[in-house]
Simulated assay, not measured.
Amino acid sequence: MEESNELRYMSLSETKKWMRAVIEESKEILRMNDRHLMLMSAYFGSQGSNSSAKSEMESIRELLGIKEYYFIIALNKSREWLEELIVFYPHLKSIKDQLDNKIKFIKEVRNMREHEIEYYKGKGWKQQDFLYKSDNSITDATSTVINDGAYLVGGRISVQEALSLFESFYPLITQKLNDFYMEPPNSI
């Protein structure tokens, strides 16, 4: 495979992989959050304490934080590989444009979560953007807000919106990769 075909393959394969990661992490976050909400309702609705439910709720909260981190990484990697992909498939720029228009702050939230200690110390590169104000809340980039059913990572990235977008993008990228496999050698 010549170099440009290798890069084209790599951009397709990696874009597809990271898009799938966004889908899988989104689904898992939403599933775990539903379980957490159910446990909270049962815990606070009962007369007396339920240490088993409390322990499971704490475990889910920890795991959600981990999953959110993977989700943000997958979003950022998807976006980065998509940029490489449109070098070979300029018509796919519309996918990146949709992503950038509907899910803003991917890179910023990723960087703030990656460098959270610096931000907590007030020394982040974009410290002025660490706190985010929406219509009814103020949150920092490492927090999660659930607002009108929307699970917002960093208070600004909707897991549901990401899932919806990436479920629509993934088949297109999968088809492009399948088409690539069907091309005769050196057809670029």
Rank of each mutant, 00 (worst) to 15 (best):
M1R: 10
E2C: 11
E2R: 11
E6I: 15
E6W: 12
L7C: 09
L7S: 12
Y9C: 12
M10H: 14
M10T: 13
S11R: 07
L12G: 05
E14K: 06
T15M: 05
K17T: 06
K17V: 03
W18R: 00
R20M: 05
I23V: 15
S26N: 01
K27V: 11
E28N: 07
R31N: 09
M32C: 07
M32T: 02
N33D: 13
D34V: 00
H36L: 15
L37V: 04
L37Y: 04
M38Y: 08
M40Y: 12
S41V: 09
Y43R: 03
Y43I: 05
Y43T: 01
G45A: 10
G48Q: 11
S51W: 09
E58N: 01
S59N: 12
G65D: 01
I73D: 04
I73E: 08
A74N: 00
N76Y: 10
R79T: 00
E80M: 15
L82K: 03
L82T: 00
L85G: 01
I86V: 06
I86F: 05
I86D: 00
V87N: 14
H91E: 14
H91P: 03
L92F: 13
L92S: 01
K96H: 09
D97V: 15
Q98Y: 05
L99C: 08
D100S: 11
N101F: 13
N101V: 11
N101P: 07
I106Y: 07
K107P: 01
K107F: 14
E108R: 10
V109W: 02
R110K: 14
N111G: 08
M112P: 00
M112V: 04
R113Y: 08
E114G: 08
E116T: 02
E116A: 09
E116F: 10
I117K: 13
I117M: 13
E118A: 15
Y120S: 11
Y120I: 13
Y120Q: 14
K121H: 10
G122S: 08
K123Q: 12
K126E: 13
Q127K: 09
F130L: 07
Y132F: 15
K133T: 14
S134G: 14
S134H: 06
S134I: 03
N136Y: 12
S137K: 13
S137G: 08
S137N: 14
I138C: 09
A141E: 05
A141G: 06
T142E: 06
S143H: 07
N147D: 15
D148L: 13
G149Y: 05
G149C: 13
A150W: 07
A150K: 15
Y151S: 10
L152H: 09
V153Y: 01
I157R: 00
Q160C: 09
L163M: 10
L165E: 02
F166D: 02
E167V: 14
S168G: 05
F169W: 02
P171G: 04
L172D: 03
T174E: 15
T174I: 06
T174S: 13
Q175L: 02
K176R: 09
L177T: 05
N178G: 02
N178E: 10
F180G: 09
Y181L: 07
M182H: 07
E183Y: 05
P184T: 12
I188S: 10
